[in-house]
Amino acid sequence: MRQHFSFPCAGDTCAATLDGADGTTGLLIVSGGNEIRSGAHAGMAALAAAVAAAGHPVVRYDRRGVGDSSGENAGFESSADDITAAVQAMRARLPSLTRLVAFGNCDAASALALYGPAAGIDALILANMWTLETEADEGDAATTMTAGAIRSRYLAKLKDPRELWRLASGGVDLGKLMRGLRQATAKTEATGLAARLGQALADMPLPTRLLVAEHDRTAMWFLEHWDSETFTAARANTHITMARLDSGSHSFASAGDKTWLRERILEALD
C-alpha cells in the first residue's frame, strides 16, 4: 500500500512516499539532481513498487526546495540534513526495521557516499556517481570524451586498414591527432569533489555496492577517477563491490536496464 507523509528537516518540511511491505529490511531512495521523488518518467515510483512487491518497504522523499518539499534547494552537497532526517523518519514510521539500505543515482549517490555513514544507514547502493565539481564541468562531461574513451577510439582506428591508409596518405589532421594523443595519455587527477569522494570511499565503513552503466558519460567519468591513483585506497576497501552494466542509459531507462537495476537492489536487500 502506498502512503504519503511528511517529516521535518532543519525548520522545513519534506514530502515523502512509503510503499509498504512486511520485510524488516527497507530501502530509502534518494533522488538525484533536482528530480522529484517519483523520478524521471516515474521510474523511481515504479522501482519502489517493484521492491515493495518483493517484500521490502520503500521510502522516497523530495529534498528541501524540490517538488512538494518546502525550503531552499541548495544542491546535493547541502543535503546531509535531508538524508539524516529521512532516515530518522523512515525508522520512526517503520519501527520493525532492522536494516536500512539507501540507493541513489548520480549526485544522490555522491551525497550518500559523503553523508550516508553518519546518517544511520546500514548499507549503500551507489549508481553512476557524479564526480565533477561545477556546472562548467557538467558541460564538459556532456561534450568531452574521457581519456579512456579516447584511447579506445584510437586503438580501434589503429586496427582499421582504411584509417592507417588515411594516416599514411596525409588524410589525417596531424595537429588534431597530437591533441587527441595527449588527451588519451593524460592522467586523471582527482581534485575537489572527486578527491572528497575518493577519501569517503576509502574510509567507507558500510557495505557498499557501486553500480555503473558503462557507456553513460557520467559513469565513464566516475570510472576514470575510480582507476586513478587518488582512488587506490577506495579500490582496496573490502566493503565496496562493483557491478557493471553494458548500457549508456544514465537512468536505467530500458526494460532490460530496469530489470538489471531491480535485481541488483534486491540482492543488496536480501
Rank of each mutant, 00 (worst) to 15 (best):
A123I: 06
G67S: 11
E263L: 03
A42G: 04
R162S: 13
R262Q: 15
Y115V: 02
A102P: 11
F103R: 01
R262K: 14
A53M: 07
D160Q: 03
R182W: 01
H215I: 02
G116W: 15
S96F: 11
L266Y: 00
D81Y: 05
R2D: 13
M204C: 13
G39K: 02
T144H: 10
A80W: 07
T218D: 02
T241Y: 03
M178R: 14
S110Q: 06
A40D: 12
E35C: 07
E214N: 11
A108Y: 06
R37N: 02
R99G: 05
A142Y: 06
T17L: 09
S110C: 05
V87Q: 03
G20K: 07
V30C: 14
E135C: 01
E72I: 13
D122K: 05
D22H: 13
R64W: 09
M129G: 10
R60N: 10
A243S: 15
L47T: 05
N73V: 00
E77C: 04
T232M: 03
F7T: 10
T134L: 10
A236F: 01
R2P: 02
A194W: 05
F252R: 04
L206E: 14
L206Q: 09
S96G: 10
I83D: 08
E138M: 14
A10D: 15
V51N: 03
L210M: 12
T17F: 02
R151D: 02
E263S: 08
L164S: 09
T238E: 15
L223S: 11
A141S: 06
G256W: 00
I83E: 12
F222R: 02
A219T: 12
G139T: 09
A45I: 00
C106K: 03
A168C: 07
L211D: 01
A21Y: 08
A53E: 09
A168G: 15
L18C: 09
S228G: 07
E163V: 08
C106I: 03
P95Y: 10
T241K: 14
Q88M: 07
S247N: 08
I125L: 11
H239S: 13
A86S: 15
S79W: 04
T13Q: 13
A86V: 06
Q183C: 01
I150R: 07
Q183D: 04
Y154K: 05
Y61N: 04
T191M: 03
G248W: 12
A52D: 03
R182G: 00
T188A: 01
V87I: 04
E77K: 11
G33N: 08
I29K: 00
R166M: 13
R93V: 02
A168L: 15
A127G: 02
A142K: 11
R99N: 08
M129S: 13
V172W: 15
S70V: 10
S249Y: 00
R153P: 00
A92D: 12
L206A: 12
V66D: 00
S70N: 04
E163H: 15
E138Q: 11
D173V: 11
L245Q: 12
M220C: 05
H239N: 15
Q88D: 06
E214G: 07
T25F: 11
M44F: 14
A236S: 11
L47K: 01
R264T: 07
T13D: 06
V51I: 15
D81H: 13
S169Q: 15
G11V: 05
N105Q: 01
E263Y: 02
